Simulated scan of single mutants.
Amino acid sequence: MNIHHLELFYYVAKHGGISRAVRSMPYGIQQPAVSSQILLLEEDLGVKLFERTPFKLTREGEELFAFARPFFDNLASVGAKLRQKSAPHLRIAASELVLRDYLPAVVARLRKQEPRLKLGLRSGFQADMEKWLLEREVDLAITPLDGKPSGRIRCERLMQFPLVLLVPKKSRLQSASELWARGEIEDPLISLPQSEVMTKLFRRGLQKRKVDWPHTIEASSMDLVTRYVANGYGIGLSVNAAEVVRDSAVRMLPLDDFESLEIAALWTGEASPLVQGVIEESRRYVAQQWPQWAAM
């Protein structure tokens, strides 16, 4: 008997139907895939396990569910018991901004409660992180939010950073509106790649103002954006956070009425104690460090 097919049948029997099972599984799988694999299980056993509409287990389905249920019901508790004997392990996916300027402080706070904590870190974009979460390759993602996540992914907004432009400290510019009034902006624009959420938000704001400002210098990190501005290569796109803009040779021009950059935590299913711990510590850190940008 295919054990994965048996696991799918367990969820279907437990939740009373295929569509309900798909919504309740701890990992992502499409309804047609579940249906086809249940059919393979029935073909292998030579029996029908349940009536589809309305849902009802057959006698053989009741017998198989009674056999499988104790094992799958106890998997979580057995896993938790075994994990208590080893160092806790947490796999986090995050953006470059979060990995560099945000996560270290949050993890340091968490280590006070879990000194043996082992971390697995990887960077990527929101679409990558959603895929990793659904495939159970990571436990938690902290990322700039680019649209509503998949329905099977839970989301909690942590903070909202307003966008700003960075100019050299000696620049004569006093506001971003002075740039929009020029009609044609000759200053080179320095920003993260076009695929980054921050750049997308900025582009949408420019379109609303019917401003054409070509992307001149593409930087791989926000540190590089700041450095290039400080060295006089152009005007940079960043966020209103002193921890991010660490250079006395630049100053910030607010981008009023532009969309803010939202940072959110993403996970699937019921949050484990470790995942919940990171989310709680994140909220505390944001409230202390950037109270004015904390998500309400």
Rank of each mutant, 00 (worst) to 15 (best):
M1C: 09
E7R: 02
H15K: 02
G17Q: 06
S24R: 12
M25S: 08
Q30M: 14
Q31N: 04
S35E: 10
S36G: 05
S36V: 11
L39G: 01
E42W: 07
L45Y: 07
G46V: 10
K48M: 09
L57M: 07
E60N: 04
F65E: 06
F71P: 00
F71M: 01
D73T: 07
S77V: 07
V78T: 05
V78E: 00
K85D: 11
K85C: 11
L90R: 08
R100C: 00
P115C: 04
P115E: 00
M129A: 07
K131N: 15
D139Y: 01
I142K: 08
I142Y: 02
D146C: 12
G151V: 14
C155R: 15
F161D: 03
P162V: 14
L163Y: 05
P168S: 05
Q174G: 14
R182P: 05
E186R: 13
E186V: 14
I190V: 12
Q194I: 11
M198D: 06
K200C: 04
L201C: 10
W213C: 05
S221G: 03
D223M: 12
N231K: 11
G236D: 05
L237I: 02
V244D: 04
V245P: 09
V250E: 14
F258A: 01
W267M: 09
L274M: 10
E280Q: 12
R284L: 12
P291Q: 01
P291Y: 09
A294R: 11
A295S: 14
M296T: 12
